[in-house]
């Protein structure tokens, strides 16, 4: 009877591989979660300055994207815009950072999705290095006290945005 162990031994291997669907190999835990977010000052595409300091006391959703990042950035852009419109009156700021992008392509991306939250290039890549960005899109949820509370690798959905932001809004400043 033990000969049937040969086909049966396949089962745990298959189980392990199936388990692989549930985890994302690119989802690397960020050591920055729980730490104060690195300060930044950025000049947006329409020429205004935006800094983390000026947003202190608000919940900040810091989203790193690029126009060449298809499909994830194209998926999440409408969700981010919708969520930003839904929460803009409630002490929530969304800041987009286009990394390693060409200005024209990035502007076209912003126009295509009618993004109305501030979006800025990161010309020397300093901000993305400070936040340890591996790839795009990555999104950091920063609480009112200026600490990084969650890092999302991959597209942000409406649900995820609502869940994280509601949690952080519920906390005192």
């Amino acid at each position: 009877m033990w000969r049937w162990l040969i086909p049966l031994s396949v089962v745990p291997v298959l189980g392990l591989l199936a388990y692989g669907f549930r985890v994302n190999p690119r989802d690397i835990p960020s050591p920055l979660v729980g730490r104060p977010a690195a300060p930044f000052v950025l000049r947006t595409f329409d020429g205004r300055d935006v800094s983390l300091e000026s947003l202190r006391g608000r919940v900040v959703v810091l989203n790193f994207w690029a126009s060449w990042c298809y499909p994830a950035c194209y998926e999440e852009a409408p969700a981010l815009e919708r969520s930003w419109r839904a929460y803009r009156g409630r002490e929530v700021s969304v800041v987009g950072v286009a990394i390693q992008d060409q200005p024209d392509a990035a502007r076209k991306f912003i126009a295509d999705f009618s993004l109305s939250f501030p979006n800025a290039p990161d010309p020397d890549g300093k901000v993305s290095v400070d936040y340890g960005v591996y790839g795009v899109p990555e999104t950091f949820f920063i609480d009112r006290a200026g600490r990084i509370r969650r890092k999302q690798t991959g597209a942000v959905s409406d649900d995820l945005f609502r869940r994280e932001v509601e949690k952080l809004l519920g906390e005192p400043a």
């Binding site: 049937w4 040969i6 086909p7 396949v10 089962v11 298959l14």
Partner: peptide, 24 residues
């Protein structure tokens, strides 16, 4: 597509090694 290939791989290995046990 990953799930498709995993299912196919499982089918292939179980049937083939099953046949091997049968003809032991």
């Amino acid at each position: 597509i990953g799930a498709f290939f995993l299912a196919f791989l499982g089918l292939v290995l179980l049937v083939a090694f099953g046949g091997l046990a049968w003809r032991w």
